[in-house]
Amino acid sequence: MINQICEKINARVLAGANQSHREVKGVYICDLLSWVMSHAKKDDVWITVMSHANVVAVASLLDLGCIIVPEDIQMDQDALIKAEEEGIPILSTSMNAYDIAVELNKLGLGK
């Protein structure tokens, strides 16, 4: 599933490449970590512009499916290391959050 997403949004895998067959279900877009904490669901794709390691902690605690960083935002190195450790895929694309969501919708996510 992560494979299909990468193809659809022309994304690079920055971390968690060994999780490429992981199934994801919904999509959640937000940058306020507490808000994500209380609203994102297990197996969601999470789109966020936040680039520090705590993003990975949130994704891991909630069992999110993957993190997508839009608009070619650079992730902090320690975030990528942590994502490898926790097995959380991080994808990067030049598309913005809205365009990513449109493409994920076409893949049937969140339906």
């Binding site: 306020l32 970590l33 507490s34 808000w35 904490m37 209380s38 936040m50 520090h52 705590n54 993003v55």
Partner: peptide, 11 residues
């Protein structure tokens, strides 16, 4: 950094 939304204690 995305913290400080004022949601911590309510959550």
């Amino acid at each position: 950094m995305g913290f400080g939304a004022g949601m911590g204690l309510p959550n």
